[in-house]
Design a protein around this nucleic acid. Structure first.
Lengths: 232, 232
DNA sequence: TGCTACGGTGTGGTCAGACCACACGACGAG
DNA sequence: CTCGTCGTGTGGTCTGACCACACCGTAGCA
């Protein structure tokens, strides 16, 4: 029952402990790969595997060269890591589109409920701007959907909840291809775009006026409606 | 502005494409590291970095030796990957405990709402068993919390939504240390345990009888109440 | 005095090669 | 027919080497 710990696991555990106990924090630089290897008694390649994991997960950012901006720097970018992960899990068929959509609805419902209850109009400015931008009839479907994604993320960002923001960004990324392919199933885009815009407007109105229940219903119907339309 | 693609990124992109286009799926084995390196024209260490990422994310499982169970096998274990990721993000101070808890509430509310609406009692058996187990007054706090975690995950699992299950597992893991440390803030554990158990019972009753609104309120109060109690 | 060009230096990025532990599976001995 | 053994291919790890890059001190020049 030896269960020998892998060398890269040693490094990852070490770095996680350093992070958790506050010896490393956002903006700090990790020790150099060579030094870390020597300190932990492992090879440099093992250190690199651990650092690569942190890199892809959006915990650190690596850069070559010298000076303050080089090396592995701790930078909280959870949205990127979450996107990569959920995209891979979806590609590996661990997640189904329906489950992703249902989870997204659950979070969006919570987001608009929170915003409506907080009744803090100042944070809604970015969402309003995106709403205006989406009112342009000349937008191509892909452009509209890109703005749509930013609109929903702007709502999440307005709550200030970094976890919800990251997860929602990841969920959106995971089904990006599915959504793009779904465009082909929409016969009359101009009607659809107009409907989506009207739903966005109603949603933001409900949020801004503090009607939480109405906002929750709006957003759930909005998302479910669209995915019902593009479902094969 | 060359933006040379990293060798490991080449490998990761390749594998993601193979997964997404169905050439690789759950249960399949990845090509050997040496072969993959030769095929993509990169070094073996670069292949290993990419595979390590998939490993930690719970997309593949690696094993030494020979035979059908050896090598890198695609195995959907999203909960493990999500746990690692959220734990690291929390350690790196990208996520705050309050945000994690709020997200967990949002998902749990959706879970119990779904279950109450579905009114499918058969899937609730695991949760019922855990509820009974938690009724034991002799349980140590740590044991109770372990069962509590499994109880909430059992509810998520009853919905069949793999995404919610994975994210909830990850959220729970991310604040595991916080919860454990929080035990010290509870003066009278026996009273707290009894209250939690009563809340669990009421929650499951509401779900089983189809009272969705009651279930939602129950679970939100349940979680918020506990974390308000252990908040410093 | 000031500025410019240049090389030193240390960082991550990558590769090649070697060796190890391991587990399966074929094959030979009994 | 059974059992032990050894070949073989897998991932795991280390070492050493080289590269590209970005900073920064410094020497040289104006």
């Amino acid at each position: 029952m030896a269960e020998t710990t892998r060398a890269w696991r040693t490094v990852l555990d070490h770095l996680e402990r350093e992070l958790g106990e506050g010896r490393l924090g956002p903006g700090d630089r990790l020790p150099g790969e060579r030094e870390l290897a020597a300190r932990l008694g492992v090879g440099r390649s093992s250190v690199r595997e651990a650092v690569r994991v942190l890199d892809v997960m959006g915990v650190v950012r690596t850069a070559t060269g010298s000076g303050p901006s080089a090396g592995a720097i701790i930078v909280a970018r959870p949205g990127a890591g979450m996107s990569t992960m959920l995209r891979l899990q979806t590609a590996a068929q661990a997640f189904g589109v329906d489950d992703v959509v249902a989870t997204r609805v659950a979070l969006e419902v919570a987001v608009v409920g929170t915003l409506a209850a907080a009744y803090d109009d100042t944070h809604l400015a970015p969402a309003r701007e995106l709403l205006v931008a989406m009112g342009d009839d000349a937008l191509a479907p892909e452009e509209f959907l890109a703005l749509d994604a930013r609109f929903h993320l702007a709502l999440a960002e307005a709550t200030g909840n970094q976890v919800m923001l990251a997860v929602m960004a990841g969920l959106r990324t995971a089904i990006e291809d599915y959504v793009r392919l779904g465009l082909a199933r929409i016969d009359d885009w101009s009607a659809t775009g107009a409907r989506l815009h009207a739903e966005h407007t109603a949603l933001l109105d409900a949020v801004a006026s503090g009607r939480a229940d109405a906002a929750r219903t709006c957003v759930a119907d909005h998302i479910h409606g669209y995915f019902a339309q593009i479902r094969p």
